[in-house]
Design a protein around this nucleic acid. Structure first.
Length: 913
RNA sequence: GGGCGGUUAGCUCAGCGGUAGAGCACACGCUUCACACGCGUGGGGUCGCAGGUUCAAUCCCUGCACCGCCCACCA
């Protein structure tokens, strides 16, 4: 016997255990041996992570697909695992060490530090996996992988070495985005632009004093947001100046040139001359370069080739010196005059402004709005810094990856995301893959004493290479750097399957069926998997890429830990159950829009779960036991013929929704069927039969109810796995508890169950009952009062139909009697439902004035609609050009409205007489 | 500067060529034998603005306004 209420907290862990015990989610189960595989690789969450709403959405959708396909008989592999998340993890552990007042990583050394990270990973790395299980994720947990597993690390080395051999990975000295907090290079994608606006204004020509103290105070809060104009004196004529503008004063110490536009007449005579760089004393040339924009600033631009991406290029064109003036911590180094050495960049900024002002070389300060690059993890200002790093020739690898989407081998859903993908891929820059971190895959490169590089699959191999190269065995040292986390993530679709070994899993489950992810990692991850998958497997990593919305907070902001606006899915699960949360996310996952999640919505779907639970209780209480030989095609009761047809419709809608990644439509169709059709009507309409004495009808209705509930449980299972699995075991068959799992049951494939006659007849009952209820409510007939009903002017067919559903209509509309008459009695409320006119003759009980108004309003409404129909039909162009179905529909609607108006008008006339 | 998306009921959002929908909220009435996490009924929208295409436009096209996001640039 089912409990009175549904208790998710009690049921969920039991179901998880049950699935686990049965190995329900294992791929390659014996019963699926000949089946077509269906593969999804999970976007591996960071080991440091805990489940946030984005994960909840992402995994709910993947799980819905996996459960759906599993029930459709596919051999499903949902490959789980976690990502080592280089910077993020190293940051967490370092922060923890600091909190415990332990010595920092440099103090304890690389090996000790890595030991600590590993032990931290062992301890808390499983958190998110357990949270995914709580969500109900049907991953093949026996195959869990970690990006730094031995096997996956082997794949990383293999890919690195191969790409290096092919010339697609190389080492280069160029400007990189340098993160002074973590003291590592980062890729372009890890840089976020943050807008800065200043407020300080000063102009030397105004004659006012510069309030340096005020400026410095401002700069302490926000060092950016101002444009400074400096006077650089011309060599040989210190009374003449060229004025340059900059938002980063401290970089002037590294200036090695000034550029003006070749056609800028203001400066034409200065090109080829030099200026004496203030504070430094260096003679630097004035060059003509198109990069300089006469419209911007003063038209003359200072060139700092070692600290600005554009200046780097200008410098290259004119052979300007590159002077690196910064340390790894972004303090000034020994290349600058003594006074500035060791100063932090922002302190140096203030210092230089002051010093230039003292020399009378500061012309102007104006507030400006500009963007400043920040590290996405560190949140500190990024410095362009000249270093040696490893790069991937992404442009080369992108060729096949672009083609694969162009020719549809991989398809984005919704389709327009392919534009975003193309846009980035067609303008791709070399990918900087080395990181000056410790946690990650150490680069398999070794250096000889003269700096010669040996890239190899192992140290022994590198040594062998060195021996050949030097002719004698020579000491080599490994590159201390590790690879960008996304390098290993890029291999995830095949590295998790055992590659580089040619395992049976690679052969069977690659390429994967679909990748489900958010648009924020199209560049980071999707693009790179495409490149690597195609290069190493000559096959796309996934056929579809389903891009879902981002879950935002109620203000529409991206939820993030740093913003502190996260809504914890686990709290929601505790409060409302995993099924309710999942259903909410699926129901809101319409394509192409962000999801603003509200608690109320989750509560609403929790109520839905309860509704389902109680429908099952109803079935149980009425002994609705499924018959093994039950064939929905053979039911005879009109009501049952109707509901099996409706079930087919619902099954088709849910199936179509899931097949096309329209999760909201699938969930919505299931919801409407369960609540709006099955509970609201079928259950109510079945009560007279179940409580009657027609044994064959009772038996058929019980069996039908049980069958429909079975279909409902199946249709809802992808969204609400826990409650449906639990109820499934309660749906007995032949008095025996069910043995098989719903998770492995067969998805409903229904056809040929629609019966138009049954649909019309039940539709009539529903209309009639609804109309009576409406009139009762509007006429303020007490809800408890039973009233008689008179069917007016009924023909044979209506009489027969009424006879067949008399009891039902009486019960649902709270009637005590149904009779027939030629005309409506006096003082009655009149109802029109389809072709049927009925009256509630309660003279005295109802207010005839109110009834007159009600009828008048209904007539007016119908006449409004009718005139629209007439206008259409009177338009010759409509009749001539519109689709015949549209014309036909309009005519039918017109006739229907005319009938309603006629009968309502007759009723109104009687009152007015 | 380039690109993408949004503007529909009080709120959050579906719909996207032919009678405007849901959930929540609101109002009224209900111990109707599964369910008050419920049942019944109802109010509430000139579908951002202006043009155009079409027999017909919330839906397609163009322009505009505002909002959001992505990319690039920023002396």
């Amino acid at each position: 016997m089912l409990d009175k209420t549904y208790q998710p907290a009690e049921i969920e862990p039991r179901m998880t255990e049950k699935w686990e015990a049965e190995g329900a989610f294992r791929c390659g189960r014996p019963d699926r041996r000949g089946a077509e595989p269906y593969t999804i690789v999970i976007p591996p969450p960071n080991v440091t992570g805990s489940l946030h709403m984005g994960h909840a959405l992402n995994n709910t959708l993947q799980d819905a697909l996996c459960r759906f396909e599993r029930m459709r008989g596919r051999d499903v592999l949902w490959q789980p695992g976690t990502d080592h998340a280089g910077i993020a993890t190293q940051m967490v552990v370092e922060r923890q060490m600091a909190e415990h007042q332990e010595p920092d990583r440099r103090a304890i050394g690389r090996d000790k530090f890595l030991e600590k990270v590993w032990s931290w990973k062992e301890q808390s790395g499983g958190t998110i996996i357990n949270q995914l299980k709580r969500l109900g994720a049907s991953c093949d947990w026996s195959r869990e992988r970690f990006t730094m597993d031995e096997g996956l690390s082997k794949a990383v080395v293999e890919v690195f070495v191969t790409l290096h051999e092919q010339g697609l990975i190389y080492k280069d000295k160029r400007l990189v985005n340098w993160d002074p907090k973590f003291q590592t290079a980062i890729s372009d994608l890890e840089v976020v632009q943050v807008e800065a606006t200043g407020s300080f204004k000063w102009d030397s020509s105004s004659g006012e004093d510069l309030d340096l103290a005020a400026l410095n105070k401002l700069l302490d809060k926000n060092p950016s947001g101002h444009m400074y104009h400096f006077r650089y004196p011309l060599s040989g004529d210190p009374t003449r100046f060229i004025v340059v503008a900059t938002t980063r004063p401290e970089t002037m110490l590294g200036d090695t040139g000034v550029a003006v536009h070749p056609e800028d007449e203001r400066y034409a005579d200065l090109v080829g001359k030099t200026v004496r760089l203030p504070l430094v004393g260096r003679e630097i040339p004035i060059v003509a370069d198109e990069y300089s924009d006469p419209e911007k600033g003063t038209g003359a631009v200072k060139i700092t080739p070692a600290h600005d991406f554009n200046d780097f290029e200008v410098g290259k064109r004119h052979g300007l010196e590159r002077i690196n003036i910064l340390t790894a911590e972004a303090a000034l180094n020994d290349e600058v005059p003594e006074a500035y050495r060791r100063l932090d960049r922002f302190r140096a900024r203030k210092q230089i402004i002051g010093d230039l002002h003292a020399l009378g070389l500061l012309a102007k300060i104006e507030p400006t709005t500009h963007t400043v690059p920040h590290g996405d993890r560190s949140n500190v200002v990024i410095e362009p810094w000249l270093t040696d790093q490893w790069y991937v020739n992404a442009a080369e690898l992108a060729k096949d990856a672009i083609a694969a989407v162009e020719n549809g081998r991989t398809r984005f859903v919704p389709e327009n995301w392919s534009k975003t993908y193309f846009e980035w891929m067609r303008n791709i820059e070399p990918w900087c893959i080395s990181r000056q971190l410790w946690w990650g895959h150490q680069i398999p490169a070794w250096y000889g004493p003269d700096g010669h590089i040996f890239v190899a699959r192992s140290e022994a191999e590198a040594q062998a290479q060195a021996r050949v190269h030097y002719g004698t065995s020579t000491a080599i040292a490994r590159d201390p750097d590790v690879l960008d986390t996304w390098f290993s993530s890029a291999l995830w679709p095949f590295s998790t399957l055992g590659w580089p070994d040619e395992t049976p899993e690679v052969a069977r489950y690659y390429p994967t069926s679909v990748l489900v992810t958010g648009f924020d990692i199209i560049f980071f991850w999707v693009a790179r998997m495409m490149m690597m998958g195609l290069h190493f497997r000559q096959e796309v990593p996934f056929k579809d890429v389903y891009i879902h919305a981002l879950v935002r907070d109620e203000k529409g902001q991206k939820m993030s830990k740093s913003k502190g606006n996260v809504m914890d899915p686990l709290v929601m699960i505790d409060e409302y159950g995993a099924d309710a949360l999942r259903f909410t996310l699926a129901a809101m996952a319409a394509q192409g829009r962000d999801i603003k999640l509200s608690k109320q919505r989750v509560e609403g779907y929790r109520n839905f779960a309860t509704k389902l639970w109680n429908a099952a209780r109803f079935a149980e209480m009425n002994e609705c036991v499924r018959r093994r030989d039950f064939d929905p095609r053979s039911v005879e009761e009109t009501l049952n013929r109707w509901i099996v047809g409706e079930t087919e419709k619902a099954a088709k809608a849910v199936t179509a929704g899931l097949e096309s990644y329209r999760f909201n439509e699938a969930a919505g169709a299931a919801y409407e069927f369960v609540w709006g059709v099955f509970c609201d009507w079928y259950v109510e309409l079945s009560k007279p039969i179940l409580m009657g004495d027609d044994e064959p009808s009772i038996a058929e209705t019980r069996a039908t109810t049980a069958w429909v509930l079975d279909q409902i449980l199946k249709l809802l299972h992808p969204f609400m796995p826990f409650i449906t699995e639990e109820l499934w075991t309660h749906m007995v068959e032949h008095g025996e508890a069910r043995q098989n799992l719903l998770a492995l049951a067969q998805w409903p494939v229904l056809d040929g169950l629609h019966d138009q006659k049954a649909a019309d007849e039940i539709g009539w009952v529903v209309d009639l009952v609804s109309e009576i209820r409406s009139v009762r409510s509007e006429m303020n007939i007490p809800a408890g009062a039973k009233v008689p009903l008179v069917i007016v002017g009924a023909d044979k067919a209506i009489r027969a139909r009424t006879g067949r559903h008399e009891e039902t209509v009486q019960r649902l509309a709270r009637l005590d009697d149904i009779t027939f008459a030629k005309a409506a009695p006096k003082g009655a409320a009149v109802i029109v439902a389809g072709d049927t006119t009925a009256a509630i003759p309660l003279e005295g009980l109802i207010d005839m004035e109110a009834e007159r108004k009600r009828l008048a309003k209904e007539i007016a409404g119908a006449e409004g609609d009718l005139s629209k129909m007439n206008a259409k039909l009177d338009n010759p162009a409509f009749v001539a050009k519109a689709k015949p179905e549209a014309v036909e529909e309009t005519k039918e609607r017109k006739a229907e409205l005319e009938g309603i108006i006629k009968r309502l008008s007759a009723a109104l006339k009687r009152i007015e007489q």
